[in-house]
Design a protein around this nucleic acid. Structure first.
Length: 891
RNA sequence: GCCCGCCUGGCGGAAUGGUAGACGCAGCGGACUUAAAAUCCGCGGCCCAUGGCGUGGGGGUUCGAGUCCCCCGGCGGGCACCA
């Protein structure tokens, strides 16, 4: 049987030593939580101003906004709890906090729902939003709901259209014919980043190549800045910065033209990009991508070449990735001249490992110093000629085996480059190429422009009109937003906007002739590339209000999943720079601090027939086995892994909150481990959090109202006060460092200290008559427990606060963060470890700041220490005040 | 293959180069109870125990290493023919 809160009986009365006050019954979160949520809402505790009048410093906390898929999941609970702790804590620390919420509401699932169930995407989306808003509100998040928006609202996407037209006018958008990744299942174009292992990131279908006219954001224009700025982003995780740097992929090298010994179909030379111009003397072949124009020219007259090219294309996206592609090639019979060696020529091959998309689609092969070239040379019987001599190697005998050498060294066998180190050889080679007029030093980027056209209905319409006479015409500002039509059908594949009988037919705004609307919509990553800025002035009639964004941006703390390390975060960074260039914002970078949370995991369960079972369908037995609840059939307990619908190892946040309350769910999700790591959701863990919530409630039961300060303090009261103030300091430090699990541990300790004081009080009654000092100290301790726990369990904290401060209507949500009294944090004496040769022999109690003479005397008085030192010569004595004493003995 | 991270009791984890294992979970013992639940208290790394060994393994720096350096292993993640 599973316990529910309702089954839990009231705790025993008189458990405290303060006169036998009966404790109250267990905490009724079900009425308390909504009550405090209403109180916060009525007082507008969490409302921010677009441009605040006061002089409080600003703090913008943002969690990645959710896609309204239907219900919230535990990943959301973790994400939004983390953000809420930060928001509530910073608010208490005196910041004016902006903590908004919205909906990433465009996207394919809404259209899939329309196709599968006949629900209109808008209806489906808005229903989901309503459900999920309710679930988030039950979590008690300190969100400014007056700023809420959904990206599928014309009020939002209309402004996005304005931004787009500004970017278009600024030359940051381009339309061009491009080979695109076509997802045949979703029937849409995918960005390179959305193709994973040759498959669509959402559908999993094998991606095909297709040529279409597309809109592109010119993200490559900002590649240098996007890369350089990563260095200064010290509040981003190192690995995210590394991933982005690699994605942007700057390299330095040379671009040079190889002259063909005899022209082919009018082509006289082949351009090559290389990062190793210093190894040109080691060349043994030139290789072309199968899609290279020269390869096509050869294929046009050579059926065998054509067959090889066709085979590469077939293997291209699919099997080449699955198999560990073997290097293969086709000798075209053509030859190119070496740029430096008079009269030398090399064969031109078509090779399956050369990519048309990177560099120039052709390479020169230097097998000795590039592993891929070496593999290819060995497979095709080509020369291997070393031209870089590793330090210490002998030029006469140095040879390449099965591994290419790409380390540092000195050029040899290299004509005018001989004896130069790598850097010098590179510049000398480039200088010669320039002098010969056949090449130059260049930098190259891996980053591609961002194609944003999607052949979908449920997205933001791209606000342009195609006119046969005028070409591409922006939709005039007065005609914005370009709204999606409601009356669409999903009974055939492709884009419903294109099928719509009237929507796309409009008059050209410029010449008035019949023209067509663009029927493509934006990639939904566009929607999420500026939403954080819109939150600053969500109701503005322009995309952004300069005063508001200048005040609030950048986001001080952004929190979300690592899965967005490249796509979303890079697009948002680009968009911010684009908005800066068009005068919409002042800042260049959107997110000053980034925190990436770990996943929520759970055991998975399988019945004998192999079917996955939900945790709620399974009973865990004390002996570690598991059984299906419905019939007791045995269940196999599987791996602990990320919660997913397919494995059914999900736990419904709504059910947890309904059963235990939001505070318990929040407390558990924070308590078990550091937030950047994966956490395992367990029933036992929730139950533990539930017990602590109840315990805090019990500690605040009974007579806890205001008491006059006592004239003096007994030792029990003083000890409790010290524990309280140490906790204030420790929890503050933990929250500053995102160590929420440590903050939880420190609060457990304070609760333990209150319990210990209660027991001591039962014995001594305190120093003051009637235990006035203890009553005061205890009340302080409970007060601080509630205030320090408030960012994490806000409802119960309010409940306790209200009980401690009867008659006040001040809310804890508006109260300042407590400050530790340094005099109480400081301790009078410390336990100092005594080591002999680094091994612990004793501990001694010393006054704080005791000098070395005192420390050594006390240490040597310890029998264990004296014994260890007996008959040995002490070479050195070390004393680190308040820390340690160590004796070094002669060998 | 390359890059990044991680490895501490039965489990999650804590620990400015200074007493390793805070705090919690699970466990065991006790109190309370007619009984159970709940609650409260206590115990808890390992061993040949006045001592010895212990933070994946091996080496190093240091008076002192979970922490710093080098090598190796394992696990996880990211990128992947980027010329």
């Amino acid at each position: 049987m599973h316990d529910t809160p309702d089954d839990v009986a009231a705790p025993a009365a008189g458990s405290r030593g303060d006169g036998g006050q009966p404790a109250t019954s267990s905490y009724d979160f079900a009425t308390a939580e909504p009550r405090w949520q209403r109180a916060w809402a009525e007082r507008g505790c969490f409302l921010a101003e677009d441009v605040p009048a006061g002089d409080r410093p600003k703090y913008y906390v943002l969690e990645m906004f959710p896609y309204p898929s239907g219900r919230i999941h535990m990943g959301h609970v973790r994400n939004y709890t983390l953000g809420d702790v930060v928001a509530r804590y910073k608010r208490a620390r005196g910041y004016a906090v902006l903590h908004p919420m919205g909906w990433d509401a465009f996207g394919l699932p809404a259209e899939n729902a329309a196709r599968e169930r006949g629900t209109h995407p808008a209806r489906w989306t808005w229903d989901n939003i309503a459900t999920m808003r309710g679930e988030l509100q039950r979590m008690g998040l300190s969100i400014d709901w007056s700023r809420e928006f959904a990206t599928c609202d014309p009020a939002y996407y209309g402004q996005q259209q304005r931004l787009f037209l500004d970017l278009l006018a600024a030359g940051l958008v381009e339309r061009r014919e491009a080979w695109v990744n076509w997802d045949p299942v979703d029937r849409t174009v995918l960005a390179n980043e959305q193709v994973i292992d040759g498959r669509g990131w959402r559908s999993g279908a094998l991606v095909e190549k297709k040529s279409l006219s597309q809109w592109f954001f010119r993200i490559t224009r900002f590649a240098p800045e996007l890369l350089a700025a990563l260095d200064g982003m010290d509040r981003w995780p190192e690995r995210v910065r590394t991933m982005q740097a690699r994605w942007i992929g700057r390299s330095e090298g040379a671009r040079l033209a190889f002259a063909l010994a005899s022209p082919e179909a009018g082509i006289e030379c082949v351009e090559v990009y290389t990062t190793r111009p210093d190894t040109l003397y080691g060349m043994s072949f030139l290789a072309l991508a199968p899609e290279h124009p020269l390869a096509a020219a050869v294929a046009a007259r050579d059926p065998a070449a054509a067959a090889f090219v066709a085979e590469c294309r077939r293997l291209g996206t699919s099997e080449a990735v699955i198999e560990t592609a073997e290097k293969r090639g086709y000798d075209t019979g053509l030859r190119v001249r070496h740029p430096f060696i008079e009269g030398a020529t090399y064969p031109v091959w078509i090779a399956n490992f050369v990519l048309m998309e990177y560099g120039t689609g052709a390479i020169f092969g230097c097998p000795a110093h590039d592993q891929r070239d070496l593999d290819f040379a060995r497979a095709c019987g080509l020369d291997v000629r070393p031209v870089v001599l590793p330090p210490g190697a002998d030029a006469a005998t140095y040879a390449i085996g099965s591994e290419a050498y790409d380390g540092p060294g000195t050029a040899f066998n290299s004509g005018f480059l001989d004896g130069l180190d790598q850097a010098a050889a590179k510049s000398a080679a480039i200088a010669r190429l320039v002098a010969l007029g056949i090449g130059e030093g260049v930098e190259n980027w891996r980053l591609r422009d961002w194609g944003v056209s999607r052949q979908r209905y449920w997205g933001c319409p791209i606000p342009v009109i195609h006119c046969d006479a005028c070409g591409i015409v922006p939709v005039p500002d007065a005609d914005l937003p370009v709204r999606l039509p409601d009356d669409v059908t999903f009974d055939r594949p492709g884009n419903p906007l294109d099928h719509h009988p009237t929507w796309k037919h409009v008059a050209c705004p410029r010449c008035g002739a019949a023209a067509r609307r663009e029927t493509d919509t934006f990639d939904t990553f566009v929607d999420s590339s500026w939403y954080f800025a819109r939150f600053c002035s969500p109701h503005s009639a322009r995309p952004l209000d300069r005063a508001a964004v200048d005040h609030w941006l950048p986001v001080d703390q952004y929190i979300g999943g690592i899965e967005h390390a490249i796509l979303h975060l890079l697009y948002a960074r680009f968009f911010t720079r684009a908005m800066q260039a068009t005068g919409h914002v002042q800042v260049a970078e959107p997110f000053a601090g980034l925190f990436t949370q770990g996943m929520v995991t759970h055991e998975s369960y399988r019945a004998a027939d192999g079917a996955w079972l939900y945790p709620s369908e399974v009973d865990r037995r004390p002996d570690g086995t598991a059984a299906r609840r419905s019939d007791g059939a045995p269940v196999t307990v599987g791996r602990v892994e990320a919660m997913s619908k397919s494995k059914r190892n999900t736990v419904d946040p709504g059910a947890i909150i309904g059963r235990y309350g939001a505070d318990t769910a929040r407390w558990f999700i924070l308590s078990d481990n550091p937030p950047e790591r994966d956490m395992e959701w367990t029933e036992a863990g929730v139950a533990g959090a539930w017990r602590f919530v109840q315990r805090v409630h019990r500690l605040a039961a009974g007579d806890v109202g205001p008491v006059p300060p006592p004239p003096s303090w007994g030792s029990v009261a003083m000890e409790l006060r010290r524990a309280t103030h140490r906790t204030i300091a420790a929890v503050t430090e933990a929250l500053d460092g995102f160590a929420f699990n440590v903050a939880v541990a420190r609060l457990h300790e304070l609760a333990n200290a209150i319990g210990a004081a209660d027991r001591a009080a039962a014995e001594t009654g305190g120093a003051e008559p009637g235990g006035a000092d203890l009553r005061w100290a205890r009340r302080e301790a409970v007060d601080m427990l509630a205030r320090l726990a408030a960012p994490m369990m806000p409802h119960l904290a309010e409940e306790v606060h209200a009980r401690l401060h009867p008659g006040t209507d001040a809310l804890l949500a508006e109260a300042p963060w407590p400050e530790a009294d340094p005099a109480l944090v400081a301790v009078a004496s410390v336990t100092v470890a005594v080591q002999v040769m680094g091994k612990l022999r004793a501990t001694i109690e010393l006054p704080v700041g005791a000098d070395s003479a005192t420390a050594f005397a006390a240490a040597e008085a310890e029998p264990n220490v004296a014994r260890a030192l007996a008959d040995r010569r002490v070479v050195k004595r070390i004393h680190v005040p308040d820390r340690i004493v160590n004796y070094v003995l002669a060998a």
